[in-house]
Simulated assay, not measured.
Amino acid sequence: MGHRDIAFLAGPTNLSTSLLRLKTFKRTAAELGAVPDDGLVECCEAYSEAAGEAALNRLRATGRRFTAVLASNDLIALGCYDALERHGLNCPGDISVIGFNDMPFIDKLRPPLTSVHVPHHEMGRTAARLLLTQIREGLPSRGSTVQLPAELVVRGSPAAV
């Protein structure tokens, strides 16, 4: 949609999912020809609405220009909506917002939130299958990595620059 100045609101840095999403954001931005700007990255204390609002407020206080925000989960994105409203800004007219997780309620927001859909049900089923296999076969506990496809669900929260 033409955005070049994209802020990223990361989750808590003590969680592997937060670090992976931040790393993926930086790598993907670079692959698409954008130079990721560390000055447009804010880490949230929690995956919560209040933490998202606080992070966006901190980012705005720096005076750095950005036209879009990618939040590392939907609750953080919801906090962005709150911060934008308090500053008299409009989503998506002034700043586009994208979330992550595609929580069930986000299509009810105004505007409906665009989000990366994570297949939570399939994640649970895969984890249970791996655990049951380990138990049934008497295998020692070991780490496994399984990646399931995510999908962008476009709704009303982004707009072209």
Rank of each mutant, 00 (worst) to 15 (best):
S18N: 10
E45D: 13
S16N: 14
G93N: 08
K108M: 12
A29I: 11
E85P: 00
G93D: 14
L84A: 13
G39D: 10
T13W: 10
D102V: 09
N73L: 05
G33E: 08
V41S: 10
V116I: 11
L109P: 00
A77I: 04
L75F: 13
L19C: 08
S72N: 07
R58H: 10
K26P: 01
A29N: 12
S16A: 15
P119M: 01
G39W: 14
T62V: 07
A30P: 03
E49H: 00
R64G: 00
N101F: 08
G11R: 01
S96T: 04
N14K: 08
C44M: 09
V97T: 05
S115D: 09
R58K: 10
E122A: 13
D74T: 05
D37N: 12
G63H: 02
G52F: 03
D37K: 02
S18K: 06
H120S: 06
L40H: 03
P119E: 04
E42H: 06
N90M: 08
L113K: 05
T28L: 11
G88W: 04
G93R: 15
S72Y: 04
H117V: 00
I95T: 12
T17Q: 14
K108E: 09
P111I: 02
A68V: 03
T114C: 12
T62F: 15
A10W: 02
R21W: 02
C91R: 01
K26W: 12
L84Q: 06
C91Q: 00
L78Q: 01
A77W: 06
G93F: 08
E45F: 03
L89R: 07
L78P: 00
S18W: 07
R58L: 12
N57G: 07
L113R: 07
P112K: 12
L59M: 09
G52Y: 05
R27C: 10
Y47I: 12
N101R: 05
K26H: 14
L59C: 08
S18V: 07
S115T: 07
G39K: 15
R27F: 04
E49C: 02
D102E: 13
P112Q: 08
G39C: 15
L40Q: 07
S96W: 11
G33V: 07
C44N: 07
P111G: 09
I98Y: 05
T24I: 03
N90H: 12
D82N: 05
T62K: 13
L89F: 07
L70N: 01
D94T: 08
P92M: 02
